[in-house]
Design a protein around this nucleic acid. Structure first.
Length: 283
DNA sequence: CACCATGTTCCTTG
DNA sequence: CCAAGGAACATGGT
């Protein structure tokens, strides 16, 4: 459930569920996801610690805890990778096959599950230092954004996936933002005009904010229900059980552009799929 | 069997 | 040293 909006909604959902809870015991089933923290250090640090806060930075979750006999807070960093999930389970509930870490909180248990094990749950917080500005925050400034883009020959779509440029945009929202800004994903970053950069900067805000809004209104089940926590669909206005497709280009190859009716195309860029309308987003 | 998948990191190449 | 491209990571779905 990987990009910024999904993580933001997950954080809001999880915060009241874990804050104030104390970790009674720790069960590490896949030591790989803790790296470079050792399972020994992980357990020793977290047992007895209490959750005091949860925030987000880019696609990362930042858990804050207070451990007895320790002056500063303990920080725990989570990342969902491609297939990670965090959810609360009942004490005696059976675990999914790919449960990687289980924190026993007394009445409930907090589970980190990840089928592909690309995600992380670690005491090493250094990854957030390398991130660029939060796209919905004050530090995401148009002038600085334009300045960085001017120095790159890379295709703008590929550039948007670089987490040091802006934090939290992934393959889906990069495609969606470029469609909204009517920019070809193949445009070399330095060739973008001032007007295009402004449109892109605005489109990034819109696409992410709308996805968060959508995720906040759609009923979600972060447990083992059918929902994967991704906001591909939104509830259609007025309809109780009807969900309309929300993404405009992502995964819509061969289907009509919602703007001009022509066929959406799929191309490969940096070993990833890019979806776009060759007419509305022409070079 | 082949190919695809929301992400990050590391290695290689220029 | 830097930018850019591609493979690797591990598993499951089509």
């Amino acid at each position: 459930m990987p990009e910024l909006p999904e993580v933001e909604v997950l954080v809001r959902h999880l915060r009241p569920l874990i804050c104030g809870k104390t970790i009674r015991s720790v069960n590490v089933r896949r030591a790989k996801v803790l790296a470079p923290t050792s399972p020994q250090k992980f357990r020793r640090t977290l047992i007895g610690a209490k959750f005091t806060g949860l925030s987000r930075r880019g696609k990362y979750l930042l858990f804050q805890l207070r451990a007895p006999g320790r002056k500063g807070p303990v920080m725990l960093l989570g990342h969902l990778g491609m297939t990670g999930k965090f959810f609360m389970a009942r004490k005696n509930e059976s675990l999914p096959r790919h449960a990687a870490v289980v924190l026993n909180l007394g009445g409930k248990k907090f589970v980190y599950e990840d089928t592909r094990f690309f995600g992380r749950l670690t005491l090493d917080v250094s990854a957030v230092e390398k991130l660029g500005p939060e796209p919905l925050g004050k530090d995401f400034q148009l002038a600085a954004f334009a300045e960085v883009l001017k120095r790159s020959r890379q295709a703008i779509k590929v550039r948007l996936l670089d987490q040091t440029l802006v934090a939290g945009i992934g393959n889906i929202y990069a495609c969606e933002a470029l469609f909204r800004a009517r920019i070809s994903p193949r445009t070399p970053a330095r060739r973008l005009t001032r007007l295009q950069i402004t449109r892109l900067w605005r489109a990034i805000h819109e696409v992410l904010a709308e996805a968060i809004e959508c995720g906040s209104t759609v009923p979600l089940n972060f447990g083992r229900g059918r929902s994967d926590g991704l906001f591909y669909f939104g509830r259609a206005p007025g309809a109780a059980d009807y969900y309309e497709e929300r993404l405009r280009v992502y995964d819509r190859a061969g289907r009509p552009c919602l703007n001009c009716g022509r066929s959406i195309k799929r191309i490969k860029q940096a070993v990833r799929s890019t979806f776009y309308c060759p007419y509305c987003q022409r070079l």
